[in-house]
């Protein structure tokens, strides 16, 4: 893939073939100084995302690749580079490389963690690139040009509302939390707010780390501890799969229902088929990376402004609308 530095040096070669060396040197200066000449160049967009270490980030990777293919086919002048990182420090290195080796014009970044990546993203911004931040906000305001994210609090609220309504405002439920992070806190806060004033009693909350095996084990222990559970909020579809297995093992499927979250294809399929154990799901789509890439490209090809914040809703997925959220080819 040609990078920007190569194309800038090739520019004077075409425009100055008829002159001598002095003129060629002059043309180089002119090319660098004239933005109109740079317009014809390829726009390079760097996308930095976490590696596919669990289901949701696997979905992010899949949708980023899909968006890259689609956008590059649609706009020949746009070139997209995706780099995946296994941790915050690796991602910081990636950002440096994207600027120095690829000379990116825009960055789409889904930060591993807000704190450690605020500085590196700011340096990318200082290099003059357009910066889009996805899902996790930075710790300093005003760095990013565009912010695309799901709404974690809303996600928790929608889940809570559904459970409240389905239980007619009373019952005993258990909650399996995610990994102790801001994301998890916001979701749980929204969830609890939605239950306020009802007679729904949260028996206990335990961390299941958005993980199947942990979901299975935590749920087994909940089933041991509590003789009656009306509903389970697993918050995540991976966790929900573990919960389903545990409930099935205890043969208590008829007693309760389970609400996951995110939009894994296996769970959406169950919702679509009208599974009573999993009557609904709440979307927190990994495809938001594609939304962010689309909007970032629009900044370069469209005359409409895109700078600002773009917050995705967390719709409830029910058997009626499940089909539109079902991506059978996605790994997630």
């Amino acid at each position: 893939m040609p990078n920007k530095r190569l194309t800038t040096t090739s520019q004077p070669r075409t425009s100055a073939t008829f002159t001598k060396r002095t003129l060629a040197a002059f043309a180089t200066v002119a090319a660098l100084g004239l933005p109109t000449l740079a317009m014809a160049e390829e726009t390079v967009i760097g996308v930095s995302i976490p590696a596919a270490t669990h289901g949701w980030t696997g979905g992010v990777n899949y949708h980023a690749e899909q968006a890259k293919k689609r956008l590059e086919a649609l706009y020949p002048d746009i070139s997209i580079t995706i780099s995946t990182a296994g941790g915050p420090s690796e991602q910081a290195n990636d950002l440096e490389d994207l600027v120095s080796l690829r000379g990116i014009d825009a960055l789409v970044v889904l930060p591993f963690e807000s704190g450690p990546l605020t500085g590196p993203v700011r340096r990318v911004k200082e290099s003059g690139a357009f910066v889009t931040v996805v899902d996790r906000g930075l710790e300093q305001e005003g760095i990013e040009d565009l912010y695309v994210a799901g709404n974690n609090q809303e996600m928790g609220r929608v889940s809570g509302q559904y459970i409240r309504q389905k239980l007619d405002g009373q019952g005993d439920i258990v909650v399996l939390r995610g990994i102790p992070t801001v994301i998890d806190d916001e979701r749980v806060q929204g969830f609890q707010e939605a239950l306020e004033g009802s007679d729904i009693n949260i028996l206990d909350m335990q961390y299941a780390n958005w993980n199947r095996d942990d979901g299975f084990e935590v749920m087994q222990d909940f089933l041991t501890r509590f003789d009656n559970i009306d509903a389970v909020w697993a918050q995540d579809d991976d966790t929900a799969l573990g919960v389903i297995a545990a409930v099935r093992q205890a043969e208590r499927e008829d007693e309760m229902f389970i609400i996951g979250g995110a939009g894994m294809k296996g769970i959406i399929k169950r919702v679509m088929e009208g599974d009573e154990l999993v009557p609904a799901d709440v979307l927190y789509p990994p495809a938001m990376i594609a939304t962010a890439m689309d909007l970032t490209v629009q900044n370069f090809v469209s005359n409409g402004p895109v700078v600002g914040e773009y917050i995705l809703g967390s719709p409830l997925i029910t058997p009626e609308n499940a089909e539109q959220y079902y991506f059978p080819d996605s790994p997630y």
Partner: peptide, 11 residues
């Protein structure tokens, strides 16, 4: 295993 699963989950 991540490669085999395409970053997702094998079922």
């Amino acid at each position: 295993v991540t490669y085999l699963a395409d970053g997702g989950t094998l079922s």
